[in-house]
């Protein structure tokens, strides 16, 4: 099966402060983009697979992101550490001051 991946410019790079997450829309998909403390970016689904919590409001570190509602956590490859379902992950990069997410 072939899956088509499209790159979307979702916003400006400076919209995501260090250590925090913000929600964006890439095509029809809501994504939460995080900037880790080392400056790198991560993009995951904006909606928690457990109970629909807003992932962009969650806390994170170099290894995991934590949903604010019930503190479920996922590694940045989307695998859960707390028994919730997997969290979709997306490629994200910075280009000319823009945030580009591939979904």
């Amino acid at each position: 099966m072939t899956t088509t991946v499209t790159a979307h410019v979702v916003g400006r790079a400076d919209e995501v402060p260090v250590g925090e997450g913000r929600a964006f829309t890439a095509g029809d998909t809501s994504v939460a983009v995080f900037r880790l403390r080392d400056g790198s970016l991560r993009a995951v689904a904006a909606v928690c697979p457990h109970a629909g919590g807003p992932i962009a409001d969650g806390q994170s570190d170099a290894r995991v992101v934590v949903c604010p509602l019930h503190l479920n956590a996922w590694r940045w490859d989307g695998t859960p550490t707390t028994g919730a379902g997997p969290l979709p992950v997306y490629a994200v990069r910075e280009a000319d001051g823009h945030l580009v997410v591939e979904v």
């Binding site: 919209e15 997450g21 829309t25 939460a32």
Partner: peptide, 16 residues
């Protein structure tokens, strides 16, 4: 306190 402090984190396409 930081840029986008009060920006929504809800799915932008489907409202709860």
């Amino acid at each position: 306190a930081s840029p986008g402090q009060f920006r929504t984190s809800l799915p932008l396409t489907v409202l709860p």
